[in-house]
Structure formats: structure tokens, C-alpha cells
Write a protein that binds this DNA or RNA. Sequence first.
DNA 1: TATTGTTATACTCTATAACTATA
DNA 2: TATAGTTATAGAGTATAACAATA
Lengths: 166, 166
Amino acid sequence: MTDPERLDATELGAFFALMEVSSLVQHAVDQQLRTDGGLTNVQFKVLMTLREAPGGRLRMTDLADDLVVSRSGLTYQAGLLEKAGLVVRTPSPEDERSTTLSLTAEGRQRIEDVLSGHIGVVRRLLIDPLSRREITALGEALTKVRDHLRADPPRSAAPRARRRNP
Amino acid sequence: MTDPERLDATELGAFFALMEVSSLVQHAVDQQLRTDGGLTNVQFKVLMTLREAPGGRLRMTDLADDLVVSRSGLTYQAGLLEKAGLVVRTPSPEDERSTTLSLTAEGRQRIEDVLSGHIGVVRRLLIDPLSRREITALGEALTKVRDHLRADPPRSAAPRARRRNP
DNA sequence: TATTGTTATACTCTATAACTATA
DNA sequence: TATAGTTATAGAGTATAACAATA
């Protein structure tokens, strides 16, 4: 199609706008999570992932894979969250090697405390400035890109080989 | 308009797609910069900002403001870049307190070495999957959001008060 | 032997505060 | 007094490798 080593003004504009907007939104969200719930973004993701999981619990390794972090990194974050009472670590009955990380009632409450502000930030910064039409167009374009990225993951984003009980 | 504490499926989809796409693209770009030029994203930004500046040079403080980092943080990065020969620090003649950071020939070359791969990644991941129409729509929506974000900066993203020689 | 999770450790990056030198 | 830049220092977070327990 076009020269692969060049981007025209429209293409470059879309790229720069994407990076700037996501960075500003991310920054605002980080701040909101910290202010409203004393959570970092990673910690929020841990809690949200647990909440989505059946029973609000996941094995450490599976969770680490979901979040694409090292197991030792997750151990560190789980320690912080457990100390805060938002999560508990319990040995798994079926496999004594495993640890199950479970959301506590406090953890669920913390998500509640934070979620409406979270949504508020997103709405105010990203949604409100756009017409319905533009939101749809934005979502469709980005979803298309995401599907391509997932189909052909850029090396480092590739999910780890998932070892399931054989 | 709508309930500020809720986002419908379309709105939520746009938000999630934005965060996932930007994160994957950022990750791919980081890797490309590291592989092709041994540069982190911050270092690349330093070099690019210098290249855009008249004479390829900027005062440390001005550069720190541009990049929204602390001066000590920039000192650290400037040290790395200088050790790599991509940049030189020279005392300013007009104001003996100031240090001017300048791009070296090597620094310019390094940008060249990295830039086509950089553009290639962006094209391959973000541009190629989209039609021309979609690229335009994406850029327009994001530009609109960006303009709003800049007009009403989310606290922490506010540019610092710029002290100019009074 | 392989896997789970933790620990010990090292490294990168960032920022705050103290400091030096100019203005 | 105020500003420019560096340095000393500390803190957060990440990962790799070694380890203990279990499969």
C-alpha cells in the first residue's frame, strides 16, 4: 500500500493522539484509585480479576499469567493486599503446592468504594467530550486494532504457555 | 445526560479497547526502541525533543519541563545518554548556572537508526488493520478528547509554571 | 523430575531534600 | 534571595535465580 517507513499527517496524528490520550487518562485513573482507595493500578487489576473469577478466587500462578507479571512480582503485590485485608492467601486442598488468593468482604467493599469514581473519571475525560457517533467509531476502530494485536501478539505481549493440570 | 456512575457497553468497550491497545502498542514500541537502539522510551523522548529544538539543544530545566519530569530525574537520564555519547552537556555562556544539553552527531544517527523501525511498528500494529476512514475517525475522536484534556488538565498533568528569565 | 510459591537479591527509575554555584 | 543543576538518598516495583515443599 503505502511506504512502510512513512506515516502521513493523519496517521501520525492518530498515533500521537492515542498515546497522549491514553497516557493522560491512565494518569488520571491512577490518581483517582490512589486517592479514593489507596490502590495502585496493578492492585486494582488484581482485585478486579479476582472479582471476575468464579468464587472470587484464583491460584497465584493463574493470576500472574492473567496479569502478565512474574510470580514473584505477584507475591509482592499479594503481600501488600493481604496486609491491607483486601485479600487472603489460603493453601489449596487439592494441590498442596498451590496457594489460592481470595477476595475478602473488605476487598469487595474497596472495589465498590473506588468503582464509581473510576467510572466517573472515564466518563468525564473520555466519554463526555464525544458524541455518541464518535464513541461508537472510536470503539469500533480500537476493537479492530485490538483483535489484530491479539491474533498476532507482539512477542512480549504473548500470553505464557498455560500449564494446566495434565 | 446519562447516569454519571454508569457506562453502557459501547462506552465501556471504547475505554477498555483504548487502554488495551495503547498498552500493547506502547509495549511493542518500547521493545523496538530497546532492540534497535538500546533506548528506553524516556531516552527516545529526550533525543526527539532535542532534535525538534532549535540547534538541537535545550537547557536542562526547559527540557525537564517539556517532558514533565523532575530535574534530578533528567540529570540521571542525561548522564546515561552522555555516557552513551548521544548527548553532551555544556555550560551556557550567557548564564553560568545553566547547562545546555545538545544532541551529538551520534545522537542524531541513533534516532535515524531507530526511527524507521519505530514507524514500522506503529504502521503494522495500529494503521494497517484500519481503513482510511477508520483512521480518520479514530484520529478525530482522540484529538477531540485530547483538546478537552488539555483545556481542563487533570491536576497532575498540568504543565508546571514556566519560569522565564524575568 | 517438574511445578508452586516465596525469598534473597539486584536493578531501574523516580522523586525530595540538601548542597554548590551563580544571578 | 532565588534559580540551575547535581548529588545523596530513599522508595516503589520488577524480575531472575535459588530454595523448600509437594506432585
